[in-house]
Nucleic acid binder design. Sequence first.
DNA 1: ATGGCCGTTTTGAACGGA
Length: 264
Amino acid sequence: MRLATWNVNSIKARLDAVLAWIDEAAPDVLALQEIKCVGDSFPELEFKSRGYHTLVAGQKSYNGVALLSRHPFKDPVIGLDGDPSDEQARYVEATVEGVRVASIYLPNGNPIGTEKFNYKMSWMDRLQARAKILLENGMPTALMGDFNVIPEPEDCYNPSAWRNDALFQAETRAKFRALCWLGFYDAYRSVRPRAPSAFTFWDYQGGAWQKDHGIRIDHILLSATALDRLSDVDIDRRPRGQPKASDHTPIWCEISDTSPAPRL
DNA sequence: ATGGCCGTTTTGAACGGA
């Protein structure tokens, strides 16, 4: 089963690019972020005609996440527990073929020292609480999306340029690591621990793409039971180089039906 | 100094992104 995630920065502006990518990459599940539309405006029919079910947590103008799947969804959950007053559409979760999958758009949190950063921190605490429940449920699980976290200095072109950014704060990175200590594994680094320039985002400004001044902030976190079935993972940089691209590019992984044989 | 963006919204300056 192939799982993928992509912050598309408006599904309306990116529809042709997303359709072209799923035709080529053929993911079984694609988690989308920043669809920037309400559920009624989501191009459900275009995906349905390609054999995909859709599950949408929409919001007008900002945020918005969705899941596409070739197989039916079971037990969908829209929204993240822990703050009933939170109206931002940043979380959707469901079971596909016995795997629990989530599409996550974690708050940006800039500038630091403001209510936006506090919101990011409390959102990460809520995600931690949800992740704990998912592990206790015991199903193989993939948390996929735009985490807005640069985990390590190697995950950005110039760490000093990000020192005062919410994406690279010690507190932000510590909460991301807490998810890992809980039992969620960074799929990309599990397979490619020292791959350089493993970026998923390049700013529109300053020729960042042309200079490869990127950051790795889109992640697939796998429970141990899902990691045990991981056979491949990669970042597909090609969509970022297309005209009218999103500032993010997709990352995907392959989960085998059974665990790969031990290499002894 | 070593850059210049993009998508959204009661269409045009403001906001959010990272």
